[in-house]
Amino acid sequence: MTVQQLFFGYFFVMILALSLVVITRRNLVHAVLWMLLMFVHIAGLYLFLNAEFFAVIQIIVYAGAILVMFLFVVMLLRLKEEQALPIFVRGLHGRLFVGLAILLVLVSMAAEATKGPMGQYSIDYIQRHSHLKVLGTVLFNDFVYPFLILGFILFVPMIGVVVLALKRRSHGPS
């Protein structure tokens, strides 16, 4: 076991354990906090994969914006689970069994995946010019149209969110 494999093993175990903890919490704020910890571990994994820009974007966008949105919604609407009601649906064991079966199939498929043809951006090319520069070059030269469409995809929901969240004063109390 080399040091790299040990580090990866730590991230592997922690990410899976944290995700299992996240989906079994009754208190929603605790679930979001465990998810924050999971995102920090995923950002660490991205650093392993030589993608430091994605590690930082993971923290800024996912952990710093999306989860904060979750926290705001949970806290401002005072969303709480009733203590007596069950948190899982009724057919839990059947779904668990089917899920494990699918997991077995997918894991055996992932374990014997082989690599396809290699691309042109080698690891030390990315380390020489920083990862951000290489990503920017590829994004703005080869993928300009998807990037502009992405701008629209982010712009339209921004307006939609403001429209949907406004309380309508013309109707009566709903």
Partner: peptide
């Protein structure tokens, strides 16, 4: 000396927002 210096500082600023919300809640 990391390659994404300032973005790291911005990320840390984003993380410290959590302490404020959680302290209040």
């Amino acid at each position: 000396d990391i390659n994404v210096g300032i973005l790291f500082i911005l990320a840390c600023a984003s993380l410290s927002v959590y302490g404020i919300i959680l302290a209040g809640w």
